[in-house]
Write a protein that binds this DNA or RNA. Sequence first.
DNA 1: TTTGATTTCGGGTACGTACCCGTAAATATA
DNA 2: TATATTTACGGGTACGTACCCGAAATCAAA
Lengths: 352, 352
Amino acid sequence: MEKENTYYGVKEIARRANVSIATVDRVLHNRSGVSEKTKKKINDIIKELDYQPNILASRLASKKIISLAVLIPRVSEETDFWEAPMKGITRADAEIKKYGILVSTFYFDLNDAASFNAQAAAILDGDFKGVLLAPSFIEESRKFIRSCREKKVPFVFIDSDVPDEDNLCYIGPHLFQSGYVGAKLSTYRLKEKHKVAVVNISKESDSYNYLQIEEGFRSYFKDKQLPIEIIRIDIKDTDSLSVTRDLTRALHDHDDIEAIFVTNSRVFSVAAFLEKNKRSDISLIGYDYLKENIDYLNKEFIDFLICHKPEEQGYRGLMALYQTLVLGAPVEKTHFMPIDIVTKENQAFYQN
Amino acid sequence: MEKENTYYGVKEIARRANVSIATVDRVLHNRSGVSEKTKKKINDIIKELDYQPNILASRLASKKIISLAVLIPRVSEETDFWEAPMKGITRADAEIKKYGILVSTFYFDLNDAASFNAQAAAILDGDFKGVLLAPSFIEESRKFIRSCREKKVPFVFIDSDVPDEDNLCYIGPHLFQSGYVGAKLSTYRLKEKHKVAVVNISKESDSYNYLQIEEGFRSYFKDKQLPIEIIRIDIKDTDSLSVTRDLTRALHDHDDIEAIFVTNSRVFSVAAFLEKNKRSDISLIGYDYLKENIDYLNKEFIDFLICHKPEEQGYRGLMALYQTLVLGAPVEKTHFMPIDIVTKENQAFYQN
DNA sequence: TTTGATTTCGGGTACGTACCCGTAAATATA
DNA sequence: TATATTTACGGGTACGTACCCGAAATCAAA
């Protein structure tokens, strides 16, 4: 593009190196057929001119399709949380389609690690140039990304991190600090009893994510040296009967709980319980901008929702792959999402 | 691009219409030299095929530069609020530069409407295809955008709206609801006195923006039927001596104020006052993610900052012009920004 | 030295659109 | 009717890069 005088094209490089543009092109794309001497000469000029490829021309001319795989949980009856990342992915897909990018989505069942493995295998069978994944199953994910690494396929994590991996990027919350924020929010309606509950509604009580959130939650009270008693409530069965049974027992054993902090998006089932039992005196904090949660927020049975922009995570995850594969631009290794505080008053304008 | 079988190019349209691609091109760009009969035939085929231009090819081939003007306040000694929108604008500029877009920025002084007019005139003198502006001066803005409208130059507002104008888009907060959120936040530390102050630190006490925020603030207490007494404090001179003088007087007259809501980003000067007078018992809420404000947030002299993502506004404003001028895509008339609640605990991850 | 194989290199075409310029056809004027 | 003007249309080139294929040069083997 001659619209900017400081940009040179392959023609100028070829002129200075006394070769054809075909040779310059071979060097740019690391194809064979150029002598080491010529290659060095061209690379020096590329560096000297700070050559920047014209992406429009490049993608127009190239017949290569860049296939990307997305590996995320399927939207389930229990939670439609995964609708939001998918929405972001669809948005990014529409934006980058014009560059010859083809996105394929592979869903797995959050309750079935075998489905994750099956879809991971399908991805490895295909010719994908990049992978965006939610590493819900840590060990299975490690196995999958080892294969990606061997094939030199960049991968991006969303929603949760797998520590010490060579991922291109992690885009998700800082979970410890998220729990810390939860603790602060649970103090706003504390009166005198100073007892709060941490509720984990999940088949797995000690997942890596949950532990970090709880650790952050407890740290707040320790840092502030607040005389708060924290009751941990584990609810393994996620159906509403079980939630009712377990909460009934816990609130009977601890009848002076003033606030409840739910560590994931199933806070609506606690809110339903509080509504049914006319316990609007208990402050409730949980996660995620889901329709059920918003409904209880508006009815004031939930005080705060903590949200990490899952839609934006999906969008940014795919854009990170585009940035590295198409633009050849650097990507920030870790992108922590904001820890958003959503209330009844500001929820209408929340951007997930 | 034959990568997607459902996309047809100008060649296919020409083939079906039995004309050359040059004629198709003339129709696509509304240039003269095509008979009505041929034009209709081509347009019918365009509609039938749902032809979508290849933007990469289009901008590569076109020699036209699309100039956009940005008209925003200069960063001042009083506030560097306007750094953030500029940052977003720069980011968008880098992203869309490859499409042949040239962005020029015109700054005005927030204390001098004449500077706004001078820059507006300079913009009208140039050949700009779109304008992004902060309509800080309402009447001057109306005059400017009337000229834009006559020249058929689309314009986008950020930060505040000018009602009933033919702007392409408004990207900014819903100010009434923002004040409403501020009121809710001011209740969290109310104990018994139930008296709160609304502080306006500005040369103009009745600006359109301020009035909407205060109206929202008052509406919250009215809606909840809370027995709250609201004290309005107007501070016309914005230097710290005046702030100290006016706050001292106000707190003397109302020594039972439990919370202060500042209607703009100058909340740091109230925080400085509270710090100096050891008034950590007063809850303080204000606006904007500025360094001074964050410092007082971390020292717990500010409880909450309400933020509207000014950087994102700048980014989206410019992207809206790109969308309409380059992509020919529809743009949503009003885009209300989130009303973000920033606390000491979540500020580190806030995305402005 | 001759022949065959491999490597290096460049011309040319392609991508999908933008736009210039020349030519033919249609229309207006003398 | 002849001439001048205007309109409609198409061929061709351009944009900056990607990549194929053929030719020339170099290297290795007989």
